[in-house]
Write a protein that binds this DNA or RNA. Structure first.
Lengths: 117, 117
DNA sequence: ACAATACTTCTATAATATTCGAAATATGGT
DNA sequence: ACCATATTTCGAATATTATAGAAGTATTGT
């Protein structure tokens, strides 16, 4: 994943409403959820919600599939997995993270153990 | 971590320049780096860089410490670790992620294996 | 004391994102 | 065919964020 792409994904999730929508869809699992239900749960105006759903779709974090009159939106787990992998590999310095990204070959390995103040 | 806070962190990293700055500081390790060097590497105007450093500082992703005429900025690994943990627990449905967050008790566990089309 | 360096804060401007009413589109029910 | 429902797109107002020159604050060297 390129940095540009990662920034796009991060920005998409970096908004309270969109993060809430995405979390709801992750929670909903493969069943997904319609805008109607989402809007009711999160108390968002249809047009506003549609705008955010379009944004999340555009960057690939969710996917919508028309089913008769409804649209079933589902979280795209592959994309969020990639984002987490990117953060772990490139941005993370934690013990857990270092273990996973071992061998990524960056100077981050120089990191000394943080003292929990 | 609350969602509000997570959204703030994601938004902070959701900008190409700030993500680049943060990655550079992670890469730099505990040694950190001065704005002068960062600005040179990333070709950013001092005022612009200062603005982004302030933003990253405000949300706790980096920390600056004055040293004579310079300021040493360092990545705060604890914060990014928390963010990755949040994503893994609340937003992630991947195999790797599920393994780590096992027992978080959300409906995400219902997820079926994605078919790689 | 003065000049140079390292950075920040101030200020204005430009660019982008967010919100949501209203109109449009599509589908299903009667 | 017509009405209701689900959702999107349009459009316009508002709010937020980004950019960077210029001025300000420290600090070091001479």
């Amino acid at each position: 994943m390129v940095t540009l792409n990662a920034a796009e994904l991060l920005a998409a999730l970096g908004h309270e409403s969109r993060l809430a929508v995405f979390r709801l869809l992750v929670e909903a699992g493969p069943e997904g959820m319609n805008p109607g239900v989402i809007g009711e749960k999160l108390e968002m105006a249809p047009a506003t919600l549609s705008f955010h759903l379009a944004h999340l779709s555009r960057v690939g974090l969710i996917r919508g599939q028309k089913e008769s009159r409804f649209i079933r939106y589902c979280a795209d787990y592959g994309t969020i997995d990639e984002l987490v992998a990117f953060l772990t590999k490139n941005c993370c310095g934690g013990e857990a993270c270092l273990a996973k990204s071992a061998g990524s070959g960056t100077a981050a390995k120089r990191r000394i153990r943080k003292i929990t103040s």
